[in-house]
Design a protein around this nucleic acid. Sequence first.
DNA 1: GAACCGTGGTA
DNA 2: TTACCAAGGTT
Length: 350
Amino acid sequence: MQDNLVVLYWYDRNSRQLPWRTAPADILSGVKPDPYHVWLSEIMLQQTTVAAVKNYFKLFIKTWPTLADMANAEEEDILKAWAGLGYYSRARNLYKCAKFVQLHHNGRFPEEEERLLKLPGIGPYTAAAISTIAFGRHAAVVDGNVERVLSRRHALLTELPALKAEVKPLMAEVTPHDRPGDFAQAIMDLGATICTPKSPACGICPWMDVCEGRKQGIADTLPRKAPKKVKPTRRGMAFLLSDARGRILLRKRQDKGLLAGMSEPITTHWADDAAMADLSHAPITADWVRTPKDVKHTFTHFHLEMSVWQAQAPAHYDEPDGYWWSAPDELEGEALPTVMMKALKAGSVI
DNA sequence: GAACCGTGGTA
DNA sequence: TTACCAAGGTT
């Protein structure tokens, strides 16, 4: 039996049931995956675990059953539904992509990798994944799992990210022309469950006999990567201003950069040397009370420590343009990123 | 190529 | 507690 088919048959026996996945038995009997589901799941799964994605995927499918439904939605509702999942540019590109495909592709995703690559939020990995998983086209899908599995399989010593270019042709070569989509998912499942970053279960791997990394005893050291840089710690303050009814004043963040387009209570700029207790930064003069616990949160490239302050607005206070009051039972439905939810929880508002 | 862009689970 | 890591894309 060919090496690659060993992995495909392993997948046939061990495929996980996932809300967006068409089971191998169904693929074999001719069932076609829904490209909308494949696309949505692949966007959500970018740098995000299966466990974190599951419920978001179900909610999105329930709220917007078709691509047309999503294209006709309001961006604000997409951001609200995405809140907590992270990498928020994905949500905005998701919406742009839905509208673009609806308008320029008659509501149907293109099947070819090169055309998918032109769509917002779809890069080399996702284009290949959609083309092969949704449409059965032959494509070399290279994600972090594939890089890890193949770098071990061939004992590749090249460091990431240069390794990716080396893995791509190897993946193209090993991917079968029959069921290429299932093969891609098989390698990714293998990477997620057996060929794991730490302590890989080489003893039960379908590729144990052909793995050069295992033969050389270096499998668990691959793929090689440059050492990570130390994350700086930035600091700031959050101000939970409430009205007489206990509603919290919110606003929308800027259009670009960190947490772009998401909602937040009033916050200061976050900087390395920022103060944690300088009330000259407060939006209004009031009896600000600091919550007992600061918020600690880690983003992709820095740590954040934020003090949280609470006060009630004076009776005559009018909210500035672009700001709005959100009642306690409405806050869960706002487009609030996790770090902002932490601030609200620190103030016992949620 | 490298910086930027979230979050939750895990060891 | 801290650091690593996950089905990457954009600039």
